[in-house]
């Protein structure tokens, strides 16, 4: 990224993408709770209501399943709705419409409709929000066909990917992250789009570290920290959790022979488990050590910040796993 780019917050980059897409396409409309004058629980939609008015920025009562269902119905008639689910945990209330409508209609109606819908939602913990407001629920969409799942890890990515998600003819669950909202990064102004299904590789030699969302900056920082010690990590930022960019993952593992998977979701039955299974299936011959997974413990996220630390993965856990695969 060139030096001269301005640095903006991840949350501002989301806002900028929404603003630009609203300006570009009259069929783009935002729908969700408190996204108007209030600007959303995390201030992401701030200023858009003033600029685009109540027709384009549709505020709703607290009725997640039905406003997602409404967005699906509107998408069938040509709108490109962008839904905000205030906290990712609340997506549970809208799962019916996401799984049974958004993800199935294009296939089951034999291509008569497409559902150009984006469901944006912040996953992950940010210190003390507690069990119902902290989970990274990427696991929920593993094995749910028809839906794309994207989890941007930086301000630039979130802008470029959100613009692509809005233009995509498929339903996209767009996982933002509360911990990333206040992180700054260089972001191009104006038109900037990134491919939805392409993992991003920061090259290294000895260990492949697959990560997504807020775990990526942690892994990149660790990579920097280990370089002077002669340990070279290749960080693969998945970007797309569904479909997975298998070729990029396989190529990296074949190069390094060692794999650590890092995610903020529970380790059991999720994206990391799927990556692990795929690598075992397709690259077993290339592995020089068992795959290691780092993720949240299989418990709800406790409210206490001190307890939260025991539950969520951190840089130390990644380091331990990296050592583990190197010393095996």
């Amino acid at each position: 990224m060139p030096e001269e780019l301005r640095q903006i917050f991840y949350s501002k980059a989301v806002n900028e993408a929404l603003d630009e897409e609203l300006a570009r396409d009259p069929n783009v409309a935002l729908i969700g709770e408190d996204i108007g004058l209030y600007g959303g629980a995390f201030g992401v939609t701030r200023g858009l209501f003033e600029k685009y008015g109540p027709r384009r920025i549709q505020e709703t009562p607290i009725s997640e399943n039905s406003f997602v269902g409404m967005a699906v119905g509107a998408a069938m008639l040509g709108l490109r709705p962008v839904v905000e689910i205030m906290f990712m945990d609340f997506i549970a209330l809208a799962l019916d419409q996401i799984l049974n409508s958004a993800g199935k209609l294009h296939y089951m109606y034999n291509g008569q409709v497409s559902i150009p819908l984006v469901v944006r939602t912040p996953g992950g913990a940010k210190g003390g929000y507690g069990p119902s407001h902290s989970q990274m629920l990427s696991n929920l969409f593993v094995g749910v066909p028809g839906i794309k799942v994207v989890a941007p890890s930086s301000a630039a990515q979130v802008k470029g990917l959100l613009k692509s998600a809005i233009r995509d003819p498929n339903p996209v669950v767009f996982i933002e992250n509360k911990r990333l909202y206040p992180q700054r990064g260089p972001v191009p102004e104006g038109e900037y789009v990134l491919p939805l299904e392409k993992a991003v590789v920061t090259p290294g030699e000895q260990v492949t570290v697959v990560a997504y969302s807020a775990m990526v900056p942690i892994c990149l920082a660790l990579r920097e920290a280990l370089l002077p010690r002669g340990i070279s990590l290749e960080v693969v930022d998945l970007v797309s959790l569904q479909p997975l960019d298998r070729e990029t993952i396989f190529a990296s593992v074949r190069k390094t022979g060692r794999l650590v998977i890092v995610e903020e979701a529970c380790v059991t039955g999720g994206v990391g488990a799927e990556v692990s299974a795929l690598v075992a299936e397709h690259c077993l011959d290339a592995l020089e050590a068992p795959i290691r997974r780092v993720g949240a413990a299989d418990v709800p996220i406790a409210s206490s910040i001190e307890l939260e630390k025991f539950i969520l993965p951190g840089a130390d856990d990644v380091l331990r796993a990296v050592r583990g695969v190197l010393e095996w």
Binding site: Q58, S66, G69, A71, G73, M76, L77, G78, P81, N100
Partner: peptide, 25 residues
């Protein structure tokens, strides 16, 4: 015809959203 629906009550918000789109347009 926007579809029959196998989820009891599943079509109600879809129809409501279609109406939102009609009004929008």
């Amino acid at each position: 015809f926007l579809g029959t629906n196998g989820i009891t009550g599943g079509g109600i918000p879809i129809g409501t959203g279609a109406a939102w789109a009609l009004r929008y347009q």
